[in-house]
């Protein structure tokens, strides 16, 4: 089985984002970037499936600036086989990402696409579902468990009330949730080996996809600040305060 794993280059999850003073966006100049954590989980799941001989080849795709090649290299060091960089300096929206991925699926013919459930920058949570719809494939979103059952995949999903398991015919799209696995760190020898792995560089135009944004960002602002309140001395003081504001 061949797997396609899209990976996104985003702000490092340990860095606190700062809103630009002119309200045009979040300041990413000279900020440490990393692979989106949910994408790391997606790569890890593909690599584990390869280690179990369920998967034969892992193709990584990133859509972004030239530096997104580094993100693909991380995935290759984790165990991906080759990469495709669709290079653009535009901020590509989920719908256009899904269209590019569909074109890549049409040519690469994977049996499975594993994406992160959302990127930690725009928090859209759309790409996997959109890709599944464009391909008319079934989807297992917010996955915390994946097992192969004959020619189908059983995907356990994190839903609001607990867990739900669905059976998907292949080909299919899976989106990863936090508890699916704990991604490995790439070892130094594997990082060296990954440098020799092939990355094809393409553009959105190669896939006939117009990446002009459909949504216009009017402004980006700091959230309303919440002021620190007061320290209370003990439980009795806390109860008195809560009563005085009608909270209990």
């Amino acid at each position: 089985m061949k797997v396609l794993v899209p990976v996104k280059r985003v702000i490092d999850p340990n860095v606190r984002p700062r809103v630009k003073a002119d309200g045009s966006g979040v300041d990413l100049a000279n900020i440490k970037m990393a692979m989106n954590p949910f994408c790391e989980i997606a790569v890890e799941e593909a690599v584990r499936m390869k280690e179990k001989s369920i998967v034969t080849e892992i193709v990584l795709v990133s859509i972004g600036p030239a530096q997104a090649q580094e993100t693909i290299r991380i995935g290759l060091a984790m165990g991906g086989d080759r990469g495709i960089l669709v290079q653009t300096d535009m901020a590509v929206e989920p719908l256009a990402v899904a269209k590019i991925l569909k074109a890549i699926v049409d040519s690469e013919k994977p049996d499975l696409v594993i994406t992160g459930k959302q990127a930690i920058d725009d928090d859209s949570n759309q790409t996997g579902q959109m890709l599944a719809a464009l391909l008319d494939w079934p989807q297992g979103t917010f996955a915390s468990g994946v097992t192969k059952e004959g020619d189908k995949l059983n995907v356990t999903r994190e839903v609001d009330g607990g867990l739900q398991t669905v059976s998907l015919s292949l080909p299919a799209v899976i989106t990863t949730d936090l508890r699916l696995n704990e991604p490995r760190f790439a070892s130094l020898p594997n990082i060296m080996k990954a440098k020799k792995k092939l990355i094809d560089v393409k553009t959105p135009a190669d896939y006939g996809v117009d990446v002009t944004p459909r949504l216009q960002v009017v402004k980006v602002a700091e959230p309303k600040k919440r002021e620190a309140g007061e320290k209370v001395a003990d439980v009795d003081a806390l109860i008195a305060k809560l009563k005085s504001v009608g909270a209990i």
């Binding site: 702000i11 984002p17 979040v26 930690i120 920058d121 459909r214 009017v218 980006v220 602002a221 700091e222």
Partner: peptide, 17 residues
């Protein structure tokens, strides 16, 4: 309006769809 970056920023978007 929608929160982005884990709620660290609030984005106002206009949709022409």
């Amino acid at each position: 309006e929608r929160p982005v970056y884990a709620g660290n920023a609030i984005m106002t978007v206009k949709s022409g769809e």
